[in-house]
Amino acid sequence: MNAAAARARGGPQAIEPIVVGVDGSGSSLRAVDWAANEAALRGVPLRLVYASLWERYEGESLAEDVGKPSEQVRAEDIVRTAARRAGLREPGVPVSTAVLPEEPEYALVREGRTACALVLGTRGRSGVVELLLGSVSLAVAGHADCPVIVVRGASDNRVRAGTGGRVVVGVGDQGAESAALRFAVREAALRRATLEAVRAWRCPAHESTDHPLLAGEPARLHEQQAADVLEQALKGLPADVDLRRDTVEGPARRVLLNASHGADLLVVGARRHRGHRGLQLGRVAHAVLHHSACAVAVVPEPV
């Protein structure tokens, strides 16, 4: 957040909150759990946001007892329930709520402009549906100005400091300047977790290692190049980072999906071109958002 936005939010010392989108689904409640833990780890407030254009679908339909649109009454009940859940999980975290009569994609992207991160669920009400990402989460991940964490899986997550888990980050061509790498370093430190930096590499098709005459030296050359890129990107990391380096042959999507098993968080970058209005997610980010075995953080990489 820039200085002007910080002052607008309450002065130069204003603290950027974790914003979580809630809609009453099981996946959004798990996102609340994750976001509460994340806010506690970072020492920041938590903001719960429900957004829906209920007037478009309900018109002037009112709940008789309170004189409000019935969907608004339901939304207010959802955010109150979510706030109680967050308070029970992390009693020391300040919680605020908002019910907004807007398209959720636009509302959440706007909220992200003054947040340190957005946390979302996969938005599914059945086990089969939850395997794929909902349109709202996908749109927000492809447009937000701050990191977007999508909480996957059907079980509660454990993200408290001291769990001794793994934070996996895909290292691309941005090298040491990568915002995704900086985000992953911080997340690993907060969790006291191992940072696993992964660089995928492949031989060109005409140098396939499956061919007996080409196996060996060409593969070692490409793997060494990947190792050199990885080492250069990690050169400036703090000495106290518990770091694991991995260069793995294969498509980046497959390599990162394999690495997501057993991890606390998978971090990938998404290039953001100024002035571009379309969905800004590369193939790798798109694939891991849909299929990762753990939560995924998509971090904007300005171009």
Rank of each mutant, 00 (worst) to 15 (best):
A141N: 11
L195W: 05
G121W: 12
R254N: 14
D242N: 08
A189Q: 14
V150E: 07
V128N: 02
V298N: 03
P45F: 04
A215H: 15
R254V: 11
R274P: 04
V109T: 12
P104I: 06
S25G: 09
L237W: 12
S61R: 15
L108E: 12
E58A: 13
G153Y: 11
A31K: 05
A180N: 02
A39E: 07
V150N: 05
G10H: 08
A141M: 09
E64F: 14
E55Q: 13
V171G: 01
L53V: 01
F183T: 08
L88V: 10
G121P: 11
L243A: 09
L41Y: 03
G170Q: 01
G250C: 11
E207C: 07
Q174S: 06
D145S: 13
E105T: 15
R244E: 07
G59C: 01
V198N: 01
G278A: 12
S137I: 09
Q72W: 10
S52F: 14
G142K: 09
D145A: 12
R191I: 10
V168G: 05
I78Q: 04
A293I: 00
Y106M: 12
A83C: 12
A115W: 08
V151G: 01
P302G: 03
L138D: 05
E130Y: 01
V93F: 02
A31D: 04
A31H: 07
E38R: 13
S25M: 08
E207T: 04
A295V: 03
V44W: 02
F183Y: 15
V268L: 01
L29R: 15
S260N: 03
G134K: 09
A226Q: 08
V284L: 00
W201A: 02
S137E: 02
R277A: 11
C116G: 13
L213W: 10
A179W: 00
L257N: 12
P300A: 05
V185K: 04
S70P: 00
L108I: 14
E55R: 14
G275I: 03
G67S: 10
R56Q: 09
V168N: 11
A293P: 04
A36N: 05
S155I: 00
V159F: 05
R9L: 13
R182W: 03
E64Y: 14
E38V: 06
T163R: 15
G142P: 08
S178W: 02
V119L: 11
S27V: 00
L46H: 05
Q225I: 13
R220D: 15
